[in-house]
Structure formats: C-alpha cells, structure tokens
Amino acid sequence: MTEMLESFTEMDPLAENGLLSGMSKEVLERNAKSETTAIRISNIANMVLLAAKVYASVKSGSLVIIASTLDSLLDLLSGFILWYTAFSMQKPNPYQYPIGKTRMQPVGILVFASVMATLSLQIILESVRSLLSHVNEKVFAMTKEQEEWIIGIMISVTIVRFFLVVYCRSFHNEIIKAYAKDHLFDVVSSMVGLVAALLANSINHWIDPVGAILLALYTIRTWSVTVFENVNSLVGRSAEPEYLQKLTYLCWNHHKAIKHIDTVRAYTFGSSYFVEVDIVLPADMLLREAHDIGEELQEKLEQLPDIERAFVHLDYEYTHKPEHAKALNV
C-alpha cells in the first residue's frame, strides 16, 4: 500500500504541471552523457578483457577457459547489438518505421541469444568428445609458469569485471543494466573456469571438460530466461496492475472535466509500453476544448520513461461496447 501511494505521489507533479519532477533539460543531458560514458567504458573493457582471455586460452589449452573466453566474446557481441539498437532507435524514420524502432532491441537480443546457444552447444559437444576419447589426459597439462600466467590473467579479469558490475548497476537505463548482467556473468564464468582448469591440471583431466559443460549449460540457462523476457515484450504483454493503477491516477487527475475513465491499457512494445486510454468528457463540450484535453494527456503520458507511445480516445459516454472488440475475443 505504501509503495502504491508513493507511485501516485510521483504522478502529482505531472498531473498538475505537465512535468515530471527532476526532469529538467540539464538533468536529462547529464544522465545521457553518464550513460554514454558507461557504455563506452564497458565496450572498451570487453575488448581488452577478451584479448586477455584469448591469450589465457592459447596458453592453457583448457576447454573451460575457452568456454569462459567464448562468454567474453559474446559479451562483446551483445554490447555491439545493444549499442547498435540504441543508436538506431535514436534515429527514427517516420516513413519506413511509422511506429518507431523500439522492437529492434529485443530482436537483437534474441539473435544474440541464438548465437550464444549454438556456440554453447558446440562447447558441450567438444567437451563430451574429450571425455569419451580421453584426449585431454595427454594434451591438457600446464607448467608452473603457465599456471601463474593463467591465475594472474583470470583474477585480473574478475576484479575489473566486478568493479564494472558495481558501476553499471548504479544506472537505471535498461541497456546499461544489461551490461551489468553481462559483467556479473563473466565474473562467475572466469572464476569457474580458473578453478576447474587448476583442478584439472593438478587432480584429474576430466574436471576440465566437465567444468566446460557446466559453464555452457549455465550460459544456455541464463540466456533462456532473457529470451522468454524479450519474447513477452514482442507479443504485447500487459503491464502489471500496479502500473495501470498509476496511469489511471494520472488520467483521473489530468483535468476536472473528465467524467469517467473507460479504459486504460498498457502493453509491451519492444522495451517500452504502448498505452491506450479512453476518457469520457461532457457531450456538449466544444471540439477544440476536448481536443486540447486529450492532447495534453497524451503528452503527459509520453513523458513517462517507460512509455513509447500513448493514444487517447475521447468519448461522451461509456455504455457502448469496447473498441477493438476483435482483440478481446477468445
């Protein structure tokens, strides 16, 4: 209940003044610059750390280190996808893409996840083949000097990644949160890879391919969750009831002439929501006044960071059947 009241309070400045609190131009520009810096730092770190892991893979010949390096490569690819989709969405083309390009981000993530799953399966197959043929028993063996190099590289990668996780989690931007998720996953894969490689070198060869299989399965499982989340965003899943209540509160307090709120819908459209609102105004109101009320409400709704597009329908009664009845048929 307290959270609900707080969310309603957040809507009061927007309902009364048409502006969100803290949404000044200077604040938005400063946030945009900070987010751009975070993305650049993450991309540069991905390239440098990938090079370090490639060297560790060549130096050790460990399958589990190779699997961890593959994850870093995929981090770099995912970073490129996230950067490209963000860049593309900032350059709208109203003629070729009249409803925007917000779906490019989840589509890009789905493509990336498919590539990741394919490469992870290849790692599993290679690890199983290694287990069955026992080739690792002869090939996989590191000298003391190689061990020291691998430990130094993997621990350094882990430390850098950990600081990047903390840094990226301080942002509210969804793309930077995705970077934070990638960095955290690389922390896990790097430590698992290092431990498995050292145990395989000192105890038994089979620990290396088994560690690679576990790491690949963890990769598939982690990104499967991301796939399902993005599929939901593409098929138009409804927003949570709490979010719809917040939108209803904003609509009701928008103008004193609103007599009734017939419909409030919000559904996913890529990474953002599309909103449909039906409000009831007096039947004898002038078209000019009614139009201004509806347009101002649309502008307020579209100021909310989660909303890509808002549609406001004006009516003079609410006893008719719902519009778009075809979408409501079971």
Rank of each mutant, 00 (worst) to 15 (best):
A212D: 06
R161M: 11
G152F: 15
A180C: 03
S190T: 00
T158V: 06
G152M: 15
S170T: 02
L215C: 11
I203A: 05
S170R: 00
L214C: 15
I150D: 12
S170L: 01
N173K: 08
V160H: 07
V225S: 08
M142S: 13
V157P: 10
D182P: 01
M154L: 10
T143C: 07
K181C: 11
D182F: 04
D182R: 02
A212I: 03
L199R: 06
T222A: 13
Y167Q: 02
T219V: 08
K144F: 14
V157R: 14
F163P: 02
I151S: 10
E147H: 09
L198P: 02
A200D: 10
G193L: 00
I207R: 12
L184M: 05
V192G: 03
R221E: 14
E148M: 15
L215V: 07
L214Y: 13
N201Q: 08
M154D: 06
G152N: 15
D208R: 06
F171V: 01
S202D: 07
C168G: 03
R169E: 05
M191Q: 01
V187C: 10
F185D: 08
D208C: 02
T143N: 09
A141S: 15
H172Y: 11
I155F: 10
N204C: 07
V225C: 03
V187K: 06
H172N: 13
V195M: 11
P209R: 07
I220Q: 12
T222F: 14
S202V: 04
S224P: 01
A180E: 06
I213P: 15
